[in-house]
Amino acid sequence: MEEMLGLVLFGMIAFSIFQVILFFKIWGMTNDVKEVKNKITNSDNEKIVWEIRRFILKEDKEKAENLLFDLFLRQLEYAVKIYQGESLTNRISVLKRIFAHYYSQIKSTFPASLQNINTKEDIEKIFKLQYPLMGVN
């Protein structure tokens, strides 16, 4: 009987140790996923920046403006997901200053439609779903 109790106790201790190891492995993997996500997001933005440079060199101002517009909207979408309230309003203000500078680099004016965005409510006024889409969170 003591042998059986010792074997069960040994098994439970081993199982507990493996559970702790598994916990820390999974925790480490979640950090890895965050790093990969950040790299993918940054690499997409970097591709757009290179495309803008390419169109500037080709003297295709309209395509460069369109890409800048898209890049601003991507940054705005990211800001809405991350920030709330006053910090979102501040982030939008910072983005507008940054992108106004970018537009000036290609000798263009910052679009009024973007200049008029100051809060989350301004974004929601542009287009709002009246009915939820199926399969979309």
Score class of each variant (00 low, 15 high):
Y78K: 09
Q115Y: 05
G28K: 11
L73D: 04
K39T: 12
I40K: 09
M1P: 01
D32A: 09
L73W: 01
L95T: 07
K96Q: 14
N38L: 14
Q19S: 10
V20R: 12
Y102G: 00
F110R: 03
M12I: 07
S93A: 14
K125A: 09
L5E: 14
E86R: 15
N137P: 06
F24Y: 15
D60N: 12
F127M: 01
A100Y: 01
V136D: 01
A14V: 15
I106P: 04
P111D: 11
F110C: 02
S113L: 05
S104V: 01
I126D: 03
F99E: 02
S104P: 00
I98C: 01
T109H: 06
N116F: 03
L114H: 11
M134D: 06
E46M: 04
S43A: 15
I123E: 06
F72S: 08
K63T: 10
V94E: 13
Y102L: 13
V8M: 06
L129W: 11
A14R: 08
K81E: 13
K34H: 06
S104Y: 02
G135H: 02
W50V: 04
K128E: 12
Q19M: 15
I92M: 11
L88W: 03
V36G: 01
D44V: 05
F23L: 15
F18K: 05
L57S: 12
M4G: 01
M29P: 00
M12Q: 08
E35I: 15
F72I: 07
E62L: 06
P111L: 13
F99D: 07
E2H: 09
R91G: 02
R54I: 04
E86Q: 11
K63L: 05
N31T: 12
R97Q: 07
I106R: 04
S108P: 01
D32I: 14
S16E: 01
D32G: 07
S104R: 07
F10K: 09
L57V: 04
A100K: 09
L76Q: 00
M12K: 04
V33E: 10
